[in-house]
Simulated scan of single mutants.
Amino acid sequence: MTTPMTDTVRKGYVPSPFGQLHYAECGGAGDEPVLMLHQTPRSWTEYLHVLPRVGTARRAVAMDTLGFGASAKPEGPHSIERFADAAEALADALGLERFHLVGHHTGGVIAVELAARLGERVASLLLSATPFIDEEKRRTAAERKQVDHVDPRPDGSHLLELWNRRRDFYASGEEAALTRFMVDALTVLDRVEEGHVAVRSYAMDQRLPGITARTLAVCAPGDHYSLPALERFAAALGCETRVLSGGHVPVPEQLPAEFAEIVLEWSARA
């Protein structure tokens, strides 16, 4: 597969009940587009190098989750249900009548809710490194340490602390991707943990039986947070699973060609 240029990405906004929602897209061919949802506290740029690759064969759309990136940031507590409300509003506004759905980490949890709601409107579902949330995870949510929260300090040392929180997920030479994480996290620094909190309180196990879409669950081998969930999703959904050739938590940025190839292959299956 050739390497598409990221300057083919088009960006825009659509209105929603929550305010404007920001998205980026590539391509336009094919009957069924692909909608991609990112992890917390990222933005569409998590798919910066995936989007144009998928766009070579399909209309590929990556949105900024409500409350993150350049999308509206309404008051009140975030929840997976509200994130899904906004994603559905964006799909409606863009005329995505039937589409393939891809979600990474938090984006995968949002994708579960969206697929359970929309039924046959979701042509296929790809859950990437998606945590499996059950009663035990919800019960112990308050005991889990914060992921990205740092207290701002006058000398700016909190910036290095935030960088180091995620540094081990990235290999040497991947500093550009880690810098994109920093930009996204700093954009929502005062609410940076709310996406993680929303995930941990979501009644996923109660929603999984409503999913009818053909589903694939994938994960990077280095992502020990989410790798055990593959077996849980296989048991709950009877879905296929796949371990990628490498990578860690930010695998769409680390292996964009492989990730895009899987998206295209899975969405093309009859």
Rank of each mutant, 00 (worst) to 15 (best):
A86T: 09
T56Q: 08
E193K: 08
L237M: 00
A87P: 00
D151T: 15
L35Y: 09
M36H: 11
S124K: 08
A24E: 11
V150S: 10
H78I: 00
E25M: 11
P77A: 15
P209W: 09
S124Q: 12
T40D: 13
E231D: 14
R139D: 11
G69K: 09
S245A: 15
Y47C: 05
H104W: 07
Y202Q: 03
F83T: 04
E258M: 11
A229P: 00
F68K: 14
G119F: 13
F181L: 03
D155W: 12
D223L: 10
A93N: 09
T8A: 06
D155T: 11
T45I: 06
P252H: 08
E253H: 10
E175F: 04
G238I: 08
P152W: 05
S71Y: 00
Y47E: 07
A86L: 12
Y47T: 08
Y47Q: 05
E75D: 14
G173H: 13
G27N: 08
V192W: 04
A268Y: 06
H38M: 00
T187M: 02
Y202M: 04
A24K: 10
V188G: 02
D168Q: 09
F99L: 12
G195K: 12
V9D: 03
A62I: 00
L178S: 11
V249N: 10
S79T: 09
W44C: 05
A62T: 01
S157H: 12
E161V: 09
L255Y: 13
V251E: 06
A116Y: 05
G103F: 08
F259A: 02
H22V: 06
P41V: 06
E240M: 01
T130I: 04
G195W: 07
V14E: 02
Y170A: 04
A235M: 13
H78D: 09
K11D: 02
L162S: 05
P252S: 04
T215L: 10
G210K: 12
P250N: 15
L227E: 05
A84P: 01
A116I: 11
E136P: 06
A116E: 05
V109C: 14
E194T: 07
K145V: 01
N164P: 00
A234C: 13
A116S: 14
W163E: 10
M182E: 01
H49W: 04
A229D: 02
E75Q: 10
V199S: 09
G103H: 13
T140G: 04
A229L: 02
A141W: 06
L264T: 14
E25K: 08
L237I: 01
P17G: 08
G69H: 12
H100I: 01
H49D: 14
P209F: 05
G156V: 10
R167H: 14
V61I: 07
D7Q: 10
A116C: 08
I211T: 04
F259H: 04
R121I: 14
V122R: 02
P152M: 13
H224C: 10
P15M: 15
E88A: 01
V218I: 15
E113P: 00
A29N: 05
G12F: 07
